[in-house]
Design a protein around this nucleic acid. Structure first.
Length: 309
DNA sequence: TCCCAGGGAGGAT
DNA sequence: ATCCTCCATGGG
């Protein structure tokens, strides 16, 4: 089954820059591959496997998304399900203009213009978001994306599509919990993180770490529970809370955020990572995740010459 | 070659 | 509480 749907400006709150959003290194899931027909997202929508090719038509300020849907079987109202899926995962209902206008007098205001339309992404699979966040620690976007795709290749189910293509889905907790650590290490190039992946997967399997239940917890409580897990520290926890749980008051503090916040707000004087996170949550409230995203992109461009590594 | 990547654990102060 | 060092791996 094959069809095409559109999501127009009337369904998108404020500007959208799809390309910038996809390639901004967020840890919700591995980056959607860029193809000639658009960005490729193979995912499960409800219980249905779908292959989506997504492209943007029109400028950031009048965005229109065109989505090609390919699914193995005929599914009633799949168009509507996919539309909801995309609106959710690209957070199209977040009113970016409100964000921009709230902080018009703020130091980060000058960062907005070139990044206009950049959005947070919302992972659609909690376990996947957790593992991707784990993989990203002390790693480059390039490498953790590759590892995530190797996890799919060796431990994920295969989804077959009527156009003759097949893709590996992200593995379930059970597959990774039963993985042999040394094998996972060799196959997926995850380094010392192999142990963390297997341990976290076991906790999820046995329900000692109930990811779904964290949705109903406050930011502080979910963070506290996550940090108890081996391999999950403040930054990985915040990544999962932001990109997985979608709690936008979370502001993951990595070296770049630490550096740029110090630079912009504290005149280079000493401030700890914890204090930076608290500062961002306090200053930007439920927009803290967005502030962090914009600051991160800005910092990378400023000091890293925008290279993707 | 050395340095670093969207950090964190385990140890010593 | 704060400050080390080490951790695997590949890309600049």
């Amino acid at each position: 089954m094959r069809m095409e749907i559109e999501i127009g400006p009337e369904e998108i709150s404020g500007p959208l820059n799809l390309s910038q959003t996809i390639t901004s290194g967020q840890t919700a899931e591995p980056e959607w591959e860029q193809t000639a027909q658009g960005f490729l997202d193979v995912d499960e929508v409800g219980v249905h496997q779908v292959k989506l090719l997504i492209r943007q038509q029109g400028p950031s300020d009048s965005p229109r998304l065109v989505i090609n849907i390919i699914s193995p079987s005929k599914i009633p109202s799949l168009e509507l399900l996919v539309k909801k899926h995309i609106i959710h995962s690209l957070r199209l209902k977040d009113d970016l203009n409100q964000f921009y206008s709230y902080f018009r007098e703020d130091p980060i205001e000058r960062i907005f213009a070139p990044l206009r339309g950049l959005r947070l992404m919302q992972g659609t699979n909690l376990f996947e978001s957790l593992i991707c966040s784990l993989l990203s620690q002390n790693n480059s976007v390039l490498l953790w994306n590759r590892s995530a795709k190797l996890l799919e290749k060796y431990y994920g189910r295969v989804a077959y599509f009527p156009d003759g293509t097949a893709y590996h889905l992200f593995p379930d907790p059970r597959s990774l919990a039963s993985a042999i650590e040394s094998e996972l290490h060799e196959r997926c190039l995850v380094g010392y993180r192999a142990r963390y992946i297997v341990e976290a997967s076991k906790l999820v399997c046995t329900n000692r770490l109930d990811l779904e239940a964290l949705r109903n917890e406050t930011y502080e409580r979910s963070r506290k529970k996550l940090i108890e897990v081996i391999g999950i520290g403040p930054k990985v926890a915040d990544c999962f809370i932001l990109y997985g749980l979608g709690k936008t008051e979370a502001a993951p503090v990595d070296i770049w955020i630490h550096k740029i916040v110090k630079d912009l707000f504290f005149d280079e004087s000493e401030i700890s990572k914890d204090e930076v996170g608290e500062f961002l949550r306090c200053r930007y409230g439920h927009w803290a995740g967005y502030a962090q995203l914009y600051l991160y992109y800005y910092a990378r461009k400023k000091w890293n010459k925008g290279k993707r590594s």
